[in-house]
Design a protein around this nucleic acid. Structure first.
Lengths: 212, 212
DNA sequence: AGCTGCCCCTGATAGCCTCTAACAAACCCT
DNA sequence: AGGGTTTGTTAGAGGCTATCAGGGGCAGCT
């Protein structure tokens, strides 16, 4: 008989639970020493299993990492969705999310792994985050000064995926992304260490700059 | 007898040559597959040597990478020094340098390796680059509008290392770094792939924004 | 209840990697 | 020409990813 949707066999429940525990330990390793230090072998040891056992649950190390990237994007999308909706709250949600686990941020926005290409469902989540950004900037009044770059964006707005935001909003959403990422990633990578100023104030100043 | 400075014994010449060749091959591997794929073993194989032989020349994989980072900073400092001196030429020098070898850029400004801490001479080169930036912005006229962040920077200007640039120049030099890094790193990491717009124009727009 | 088939786990194995240790050969200097 | 230094070798420990063959146990079907 066909199982009702939502019902799970004990096997499926167990499998899902093991996969969840593997991912949890993987996040622990990533938080501790970065994604490059992630080892299926070490996770298996922690769980009292032998190495190859994990390959029943994840076809490869890359498959596990892809899953983690997917989860990270989902987590970021949730954080962004939970924010109030205005630009400032989105920015602070982003920064809080990044500071909560810097290695997770770098998993999404850090050095790319050479061969890797994100599956479609991941880019879909990323563009949902972008849509939220566009919402916020489209809701903002004023700013109809069209720069040359605005004109370029008006002709290449595929990435906005049909969003009706006017060109200045497109430009500002992009700048939100690149400027805040610039400040955040350098802070998280430790490049401001020992420079004396407060990274939070730099971040705030860059956020302020988005109203130009 | 004490050797005259500049004179090298044949041994030293050979040693320097082997070290140079190792680094050259290392750059090849990094350009091809990123720093994480760098393998001393593979380099030795390419050079017709057995693996452990290289440990005569570099104490560890990390030591080799540190050397490469040092060289990369020096190369960037050279590129910046060769630029005209105004802000725009510095920006284009930076972008050209980054595009010439993206993995080299990420070696300096990408995801940090967890345990690594740069030696003093490397941070010295980095601050020489920053000094050039401060020169360029200090030479710029106008812009005496002091923001709250300017006031903060005026009180925490240790990182400027005695440079006499006024606070707005400090702020702008920082913004130069973070904004251009934000646009560049996302471009190089491929996050703009398939979005349709021209990253060069985004970069130019961000450069334009530094006059605010 | 018994049987059958699927799923999970283990140990062995291949092939990479870094890095150490012991040993042999080449080389430069005196 | 001899002797110490430097450079190379092989062997090996210990780590990793990943595959494969085989043993057990649970589940569901007859």
């Amino acid at each position: 008989m066909a199982r009702t949707a939502g019902t799970e066999t004990p096997r499926e429940r167990y499998r899902a639970q093991v996969r969840a525990e593997v991912k949890e330990r993987a996040w622990g390793q990533i938080a501790a020493a970065g994604a490059s230090a992630l080892s299926l072998n070490a996770i298996a040891r922690q769980m009292g299993m032998s190495g190859p056992a994990l390959y029943r649950y994840f076809g490869s190390r890359d498959e596990l990492i892809t899953e983690l990237i997917r989860d990270a994007y989902r987590s970021l999308a949730d954080a962004v969705r939970a924010a109030d909706g205005d630009v400032a709250s989105l920015a602070h949600a982003l920064r809080a999310w990044a500071l909560a686990d810097p290695h997770r941020y770098f998993l999404l926005y850090g050095t790319p792994v050479p061969g890797y290409h994100a599956p479609d469902d991941i880019t879909a989540i990323a563009s949902e985050i972008m849509a939220r950004l566009l919402d916020a900037f489209a809701a903002l009044p004023g700013g109809d000064a069209e720069t040359p770059f605005d004109a370029h964006l008006a002709e290449h707005r595929e990435w906005a995926d049909g969003h009706p935001a006017p060109p200045p909003a497109l430009r500002r959403a992009l700048a939100f992304w690149t400027r805040l990422h610039g400040a955040l990633s350098l802070e998280l990578a430790g490049h401001f260490a020992g420079m004396g100023f407060d990274p939070a104030l730099l971040f705030a100043a860059e956020l302020e700059s988005l109203g130009d």
